[in-house]
Design a protein around this nucleic acid. Structure first.
Lengths: 247, 247
DNA sequence: GCGAAACGAGAGCACTGCTCTCGTTTCAGA
DNA sequence: TCTGAAACGAGAGCAGTGCTCTCGTTTCGC
């Protein structure tokens, strides 16, 4: 009876959600880029007020006035959107730190470290959900794609540069527990930094994130009454450890 | 026509989901306690393999062979279940630490600190999801109920005890930036601990959590190749800072 | 100009937390 | 001991989610 819907010649619908740029010229490509950015912006807005865990693709679609299924033309899944936000967060943080460090005298390494630390904390305080997204507990199933790793590395890179400014070494790396545990870092820095300094760097790095995480995640309430003031004091001590370590 | 269902005298159904113990005697009370424990156990099992974010009340009900709505007789909401798990996690961690510290010579404070630190990390490594639950990013809307605070405090308490073992003071607390920022902690310890030592304690505390969080959350991959070995080295240095601080 | 690819909209599936109702079981007080 | 009230389990139902599939339209590249 009813003829099955006329079968128009239909194509395969093989849109790449994680669009690898395609031709940059076309009008469609431009619109696509804009919409992608709009989706990320809406997601960022939504995340800023309710956090990453409650981020809803449907809510984003609603805000943008489009069907929820349309989002999938731009991001293959919620996870992929999250990944994009993670990368953006890393980049934004790294930019903030780099800018702050660049503003102070390159010879004053104490001041450089202080600038780095303050930039890190300030960014975290101003973007708590983004901070939680990248340095808080990761979603269990979530395996960081290779893309994020490069961006993630930019942040500690700033501290490594600081270390390189005073602890370069040409001496062979000693073979001991410390160098064993830091093998990856030693490799990454091409054996150019003194191992003791590297170790102090990692420790200070951990303290920085510890202080900020404990503050942001509410573990300082009623004990460390003024986290910012305490952080300032800690900066001085941490700077000494990072900079005055004799290799 | 059809008589509306006969209105049996019906009561108000005012079960308190967050059961405040009631009479301990009755059979019903005992069954209730058992089922509550079973639900928490199932939740813990489910969390251990897929993390807290994907914890599903319906899945728990399924595992226990009951209707999902029945769960609400025991926990008013998913959040309340989470809270119970959080408290259990804090208690379990605090127990582990206390037990580890108690096993070493009370006079050897370096060894005591080392035991504390190792117990903390070991627990975290063995219970990564529980660790993430209590020290990772909190759910944005989630405000820690008063109940959790007491349990949460037990953990850093262990370090405070260590500090008290060597930095008691009867001198008045100086009025400076450090004491201002730590006002809450000074109050909590009833001004019995030297402020400098308190400051070092907080810093070391932060470093401990920083090291463990960075390791567990995957920020050490390819850099700190052997986190456990590195942690061991850091312990020595941290112990010195905590214990050898001259007030 | 035309075929193929890209796209937006909409329906639908399986899942979630949570609520409400209803019949049953247990408890506590008279 | 009896009885009304409280506690309980089951089930249906609601609103929300991520994601898939289909279908008609628009745009692109050759």
């Amino acid at each position: 009876m009813a003829t099955s819907k006329k079968k128009t010649k239909q194509s395969a619908d093989t849109t790449q959600a994680s669009g690898a740029s395609k031709k940059a010229g076309g009008v469609r490509a431009r619109v696509r880029a804009e919409l992608t950015a709009e989706i990320k912006a809406a997601a960022g807005r939504q995340m800023a007020e309710s956090g990453a865990s409650s981020l809803s693709l449907r809510a984003i679609a609603r805000e943008l006035g489009m069907a929820s299924s349309a989002i999938y033309r731009y991001f293959a899944s919620r996870d992929e959107l999250l990944t994009a936000l993670i990368i953006d967060a890393y980049e934004d943080l790294a930019d903030s730190i780099d800018a702050a460090v660049a503003e102070v005298d390159a010879d004053d390494r104490h001041a450089q470290f202080a600038a780095l630390a303050r930039a890190l904390r300030t960014w975290a305080v101003n973007n708590p959900h983004e901070y939680a997204l990248i340095y808080g507990s990761p979603v269990p199933g979530y395996a960081a794609p290779q893309d994020t790793i490069a961006s993630a590395a930019r942040v500690p890179q700033a501290l490594l540069v600081l270390l390189m400014g005073g602890h370069e070494t040409t001496k062979p790396i000693p073979k001991n527990d410390l160098s064993t545990s830091l093998a990856g870092l030693i490799d990454y820095t091409e054996r150019s930094i003194d191992v003791e300094a590297l170790g102090q760097g990692v420790e200070v790095w951990a303290e920085l994130f510890g202080l900020i995480s404990l503050e942001l995640f509410g573990h300082f309430t009623n004990t460390v009454t003024d986290p910012e003031l305490f952080f300032e004091q800690a900066i001085t001590r941490m700077a000494s450890r990072v900079i005055d370590t004799t290799g």
